[in-house]
Amino acid sequence: MTRVPLVHLAHARSGDKGDTANVGLIAYDPAHYPLLVEAVTVEAVKAHFTGLVHGPVERFELPNLHALNFLLHGALGGGGTRSLMNDAQGKVFSTALLRMEIDVPDEVAAAVRGRGRVPAGWTPDRYGSP
């Protein structure tokens, strides 16, 4: 097994409802969805967000979209216009989850290496090119 950050296995988007941030975590490869279900548990996510999320964490499964949805309560400094946070609406909470590392089989780790990151040598004048 090899430890791999989620950024290589999944993409994500987050939003807000009051003081709760949601993060939808979507496997790039449907075959890797069970790895997320197994490792990205409520307990693991709560531990990952220590000091950033102050309330409970809920998890919902969307196997049809090979996605997990997390509700992170007490994450936005009061939420809405009350929050003093730069990310008051939790817009980039998704990327904070993608820092989390999980154990995956070595062959999976090899297959996803570099996935989810801008390729070496890419420059903004190539925006829009694979």
């Binding site: 993409h11 994500a12 988007r13 987050s14 939003g15 807000d16 409802k17 949601n22 939808g24 979507i26 809920e58 919902f60 969307l62 979209l65 996605a67 949805n69 509700l71």
Partner: peptide, 10 residues
């Protein structure tokens, strides 16, 4: 899919 999960609850 990214839009579907945006601001999603249960």
């Amino acid at each position: 899919t990214e839009q579907i999960v945006y601001e999603m609850g249960d």
